[in-house]
Each structure stands twice: as structure tokens, then as C-alpha cells.
């Protein structure tokens, strides 16, 4: 008898990319913002991020253990969720609140719905929104040492009050806010990395950020102020890293453009007419819910067939 060979359906080769390599790329892309956050807000920022990451990975491990499911922490998605949650919180967030946020993100939003790929809203965003409405410490921004916190206002609030804000400060991030949201340069670096590695495409960040800029410009009639508004708050972090979450965003380029535009419009409406100063998280969360409908509307036309 001849030696038997491996029989399999085609294709017999693979590009080499995996779920974990994609998650690793996202982690790498978030490193500049994480480092900037620690430099700007001090070691407390590192503690918040580290606790969120550790708690997210720990809860996923425990959930899989208790539910007798295959262990999934090796896909690194829990690390991404933890990082994003930490970067979306002020450096002053108490540790126990971070742990509750991680518990909600991983167990309630992700694992109870079936784990990675089955959650219909972004876990980090949803946890952040829960914390925002529950804990005053999360709603209040942290300020870097040396920055006058007496005014108690982030650039977004100051701009809304008609004050102007220095663009360089916005780019460097030396102002009040959440750990990972203030340094625009670090976030844009991460964006370029994700594009270069073909992890995300341009449609969602560009339509999201672009539409906020356009709406702000229409309201303010001042391009510099619109730009300052665009670089403020959680817009870049949300548009680049949270709205582009594969699981909770549309699949096709057309769908992504619609999704980004919707996020931009909602962010603008909440910022100008809502009771919260910032609307990025709410906007993404709301748009997450309509993804199945956007997907349905924006299917590809199939070669030689009707629109599916």
C-alpha cells in the first residue's frame, strides 16, 4: 500500500493572517495612544489600562472555564477590549469601577451573546456608556499635572462655551479627557498603521470624522474651530478604533460609509443638542444596533445576477 496523503478541499494554501494576528495589530496600533496617555496623565493611567486589560482577560478565562467552553483568550480580543475600555476612561477612575466595566463588557456584552463574533454591540463602548451613566468619576474628565483643572473643562466644553483652543495642544493631547483620547498624533499614527497593515479600511474613520467636521463647520462657520472640535473629545479614538470593530460594523464599503456618516451625524446632534458634552460612544452604540439593516441594504451586486 502506498503512503496515504492528506486529502482536503481546496484551497491548499492560506495568506497566513489569523484572528489573533489581527487583534495583535490592533494592540500595536493602540500602543502610541497608550504610551501618550501614560506620559500625559501619569502612572494612574497605566494602572487603569492594566486593570481593564487584566480584568477583561481574566473574566473571559473564567467565563469559558465555568461555562465549559473552549478557551478563547488566545485570540487576544479580550486584550483589545480591555485596552479600549481603559483608554476610554479617565485616569482617575477607581479600580473597582474598572473591574465592573470589564465584567460588563466581557461577560454580559460579549460572552453571554456567544463570544467573539456574536456580540451585536461593541463591548468596550457599551461598558463605557454603562459606567458613564452610573459613575460620576467616569463622567468627569481627568487632567494632566500642570494643566489648570480649576475650570473643570475639556477642550470640547471650552469650545462649546465659545472659547478657542490651541490646535497644537489638541494634537499633543496635553489636556483633560480620557487616557487614550487626547493625543491626536498618537491616534492618527495608529490609524496609519492599521491602514498599512490592511486591518481596517478608510471608509468608517473618514466618513465618521469627516462628517463631524462638515457638520461642525456648518454650525460654526469657522474651519479652524470645526477642526478643533474634530480633534477634541473621543472622536478620533472612537472613529478609528471602536467604530471599525469588524463584528459590530457593516461589511461592504458602501455600508461602512453609511455607518460612518450615521455615527458622525449622531455625534454632532448629541454634542450640540444633547445633554452630554460628548456623543461619540452613544453614536457608535446606536449605529451598532442598525448594522444588520445597513448590511441588508448594501449587499454587493453579484456577477451575472440580480442584486441579492
Amino acid at each position: 500500500m502506498d503512503k496515504m496523503l492528506h486529502l482536503s478541499v481546496s484551497p491548499h494554501t492560506h495568506c497566513g493572517r489569523s484572528t489573533s494576528s489581527i487583534m495583535l495589530d490592533v494592540i500595536i496600533a493602540l500602543l502610541p495612544a497608550t504610551i501618550a496617555g501614560v506620559v500625559i496623565f501619569g502612572l494612574n493611567a497605566l494602572l487603569v489600562v492594566a486593570v481593564c486589560v487584566a480584568a477583561c482577560v481574566g473574566f473571559e478565562y473564567l467565563f469559558n472555564l465555568i461555562a465549559k467552553k473552549e478557551q478563547t483568550i488566545g485570540d487576544y480580543s479580550a486584550i483589545v477590549t480591555g485596552l479600549l475600555l481603559g483608554l476610554n476612561l479617565p485616569a482617575t477612575t477607581p479600580i473597582w469601577q474598572c473591574v465592573i466595566g470589564a465584567l460588563f463588557a466581557i461577560v454580559v456584552v460579549k460572552c453571554l451573546f456567544g463570544g467573539l463574533g456574536y456580540n451585536f454591540v461593541n463591548p468596550a463602548i457599551t461598558a463605557r456608556v454603562l459606567m458613564l451613566v452610573s459613575f460620576a468619576s467616569v463622567a468627569a474628565p481627568a487632567f494632566p499635572a500642570g494643566v489648570d483643572a480649576a475650570a473643570g473643562a475639556t477642550p470640547l466644553v471650552q469650545l462649546a462655551n465659545g472659547e478657542s483652543f490651541d490646535l497644537l495642544t489638541l494634537l499633543l493631547g496635553n489636556h483633560g479627557g480620557a487616557v487614550g483620547e487626547t493625543c491626536a498624533i498618537a491616534l492618527i499614527l495608529g490609524f496609519l498603521y492599521l491602514l498599512a497593515r490592511d486591518v481596517i479600511s478608510w471608509e468608517i474613520p473618514v466618513s465618521f470624522i469627516g462628517s463631524v467636521f462638515v457638520f461642525s463647520f456648518l454650525m460654526e462657520g469657522d474651519a479652524m474651530k470645526a477642526l478643533a472640535l474634530t480633534l477634541s473629545g473621543g472622536l478620533l479614538l472612537g472613529a478609528i478604533f471602536m467604530a471599525t470593530d469588524y463584528v459590530t460594523s457593516p461589511t461592504t464599503p458602501a455600508g461602512k460609509l453609511i455607518f460612518g456618516l450615521g455615527c458622525g451625524l449622531l455625534t454632532f446632534l448629541i454634542r450640540y443638542f444633547g445633554s452630554y458634552p460628548e456623543g461619540v460612544s452613544f453614536a457608535i452604540l446606536i449605529m451598532n444596533l442598525v448594522v444588520p439593516y445597513i448590511d441588508k441594504l448594501t449587499k454587493h451586486r453579484i456577477y451575472g445576477g440580480k442584486k441579492a
Binding site: S18, T19, T72, G115, L116, G117, Y246, S249
Partner: peptide, 10 residues
């Protein structure tokens, strides 16, 4: 590599 759940990357 090991199969994981679909992450809807598109």
C-alpha cells in the same frame, strides 16, 4: 491555523 468564530471582517 486554528479555526475561530467568524469575526465579520468582510
Amino acid at each position: 491555523p486554528k479555526e475561530t468564530a467568524c469575526i465579520r471582517c468582510g
